Computed example of a mutant assay.
Amino acid sequence: MKKITTILILILFCSCNKEKTKEPPKTIPEEASYFKQIKINDAKLGEPTYGDWLFSHKENEQTFEQYYRSKHIVPTKEENIIYIKPIGNFNALQKKQIQLVNEYLELFFQLKTKTLEPISNDIVPNSARRMSTEGHEQLLAGYLLNDVLKEENPQNRIALMGLSELDLYPKPEWNYVFGLASYRDKVGVSSIYRFQDGELTAENFNLCLSRLLKTSSHEIGHMFGLHHCINADCVMNGTNSLSETDRSTIRLCSVCQRKLNSCIQYDNKKRLTDLENFFKRNNLIEEFDSMKKDISVIQ
Rank of each mutant, 00 (worst) to 15 (best):
M1A: 11
L8C: 03
L12K: 02
S15D: 04
E19W: 12
T21N: 01
P24R: 13
T27N: 10
K39Y: 11
I40L: 05
N41M: 05
D42L: 03
G51S: 04
W53I: 03
K58R: 13
E61F: 13
Q62G: 10
Y68S: 02
K77Y: 03
I82M: 04
K85F: 07
K96V: 01
N102Q: 08
E103T: 11
L105Q: 08
T113Q: 06
S120H: 02
P125H: 05
E134I: 02
G135D: 02
Y143K: 09
Y143G: 09
Y143T: 02
Q155W: 06
N156L: 03
I158M: 10
M161K: 00
M161W: 05
G162R: 07
L168I: 01
N175S: 15
N175H: 14
N175M: 09
F178V: 08
G179R: 05
I192K: 06
Q196A: 09
D197S: 15
L200V: 13
L200W: 08
T201P: 15
T201Y: 05
F205E: 12
N206Y: 12
L212R: 08
K214H: 13
C229H: 12
D233V: 05
T239E: 04
E244K: 05
C253R: 08
C253F: 09
V255W: 04
C256V: 06
K269V: 10
K270H: 02
R271M: 08
R271I: 03
R271G: 03
R271Q: 12
L272C: 00
F279W: 07
K280L: 14
E287P: 00
M291L: 06
K293T: 11
I298D: 09
